[in-house]
């Protein structure tokens, strides 16, 4: 297992390089020069040139990339053009908020989604199944920002249970977590249900019945274990989606975080910050797939055998 893990980690290196090239180059196609925003109207060309040298924008692109990558690998993400602060500071401020939000949303969607999926599968084609799957369909078709605003309308404005916005105290996390989590929950519930129904039809389940085990025990101890393998795999692949949900939801709830930082920096054409945000999100996606592979190996001895 260990040699596989090392190999798997090494495989991340070319992926990381490819992603970094894409992130770096894409941003240089964005029209609008950040320098223009910094200079006072009527500044001299000399002042402009001096500014470009300061931010390293006078060199050819490949050289800029090399310098940038070198700095990134040393933990130096550059200086924010607009905020005039080290980008690493901005990220360090924003990241914990996003991680807390994303982590809780992931937890919520997994736990609630699995429970709903199991209940639906156990009651296949009866009313609990129909009710859950109907609710799940509706839940997954609402735009997350709209859902967030409606939750604010109901729980903050009408009932006054939770704050409308901000990031103070656990109360401020409830609605954002719900908003992101409901979409993920729908996905998890659907996959859990389908894989449980699929796993119930396998041969070994018949033999479990023939051994005299109770149906509930068979479903929860054996069938569910099998159903969770695809759930974990797909969840890990979709960690990026949860973060994507976090981007919009952070804006809606006016919470600090990577999403708010990204949207703000995009509109200000603040390259270094946007690059850093995207890099963080990309790394989260890569680590997510890695985590998925590891969890799959832990849950399935056949996968472990294939790996070693």
């Amino acid at each position: 297992m260990l040699p596989w893990l090392v190999k798997r980690l090494l495989m991340l290196v070319p992926v990381f390089l490819a992603v970094s090239v894409v992130i770096f180059s894409i941003l240089h196609f964005i029209p609008g020069d950040p320098i223009d925003n910094l200079l006072k109207i009527g500044s001299s060309p000399e002042a402009r040139a001096e500014m470009e040298v300061r931010y390293g924008l006078d060199k050819p692109l490949p050289v800029q990339y090399g310098i940038w990558l070198g700095n990134v690998l040393q933990g130096d993400l550059g200086t924010a053009i607009v905020a005039r602060r080290p980008v690493a500071d901005l990220i360090a401020q924003a990241l914990p908020h996003s991680l807390r939000l994303g982590g809780l949303a992931l937890l919520f969607s997994t736990v609630v989604g699995v429970v709903l999926g199991v209940v639906a599968a156990l009651n296949r084609d009866r009313w609990p199944d129909r009710a859950i799957m109907g609710g799940v369909l509706v839940g997954s078709t609402m735009p997350s920002f709209w859902l967030g605003l409606i939750l604010i309308l109901i729980f903050s404005v009408s009932l006054g249970w939770f704050p409308v916005s901000g990031a103070r105290g656990w109360q401020s996390l409830v609605l954002p977590v719900l908003t992101i989590g409901l979409g993920g929950m729908a996905l998890v519930a659907r996959i859990t249900r389908v894989s449980m129904i699929e796993a119930s039809g396998r041969d070994f389940v018949t033999l479990l019945h023939a051994k005299g085990l109770s149906p509930l025990r068979i479903q929860l101890r054996h069938v569910l274990r099998h159903a969770l393998i695809p759930v974990v795999t797909i969840l890990a692949l979709r960690i990026g989606w949860i973060l994507g949900g976090a981007v919009t939801v952070e804006v809606v709830f006016a919470r600090p975080g990577l999403g708010t930082l990204l949207i703000k920096s995009l509109s200000q054409h603040d390259y270094p910050v946007v690059q850093a945000c995207l890099l963080m999100l990309a790394m989260a996606v890569m680590l997510g797939t890695l985590l998925g592979d590891i969890l799959q190996a832990l849950m399935d001895p056949r996968v472990r055998a294939a790996l070693s």
Partner: peptide, 20 residues
């Protein structure tokens, strides 16, 4: 495979930023 694991909203946001 690379783009597939990124959320569509992020890809779209960046592209709109480029195109306007």
């Amino acid at each position: 495979d690379l783009t597939w694991s990124f959320p569509e909203i992020l890809i779209a946001l960046i592209l709109v930023a480029i195109i306007g």
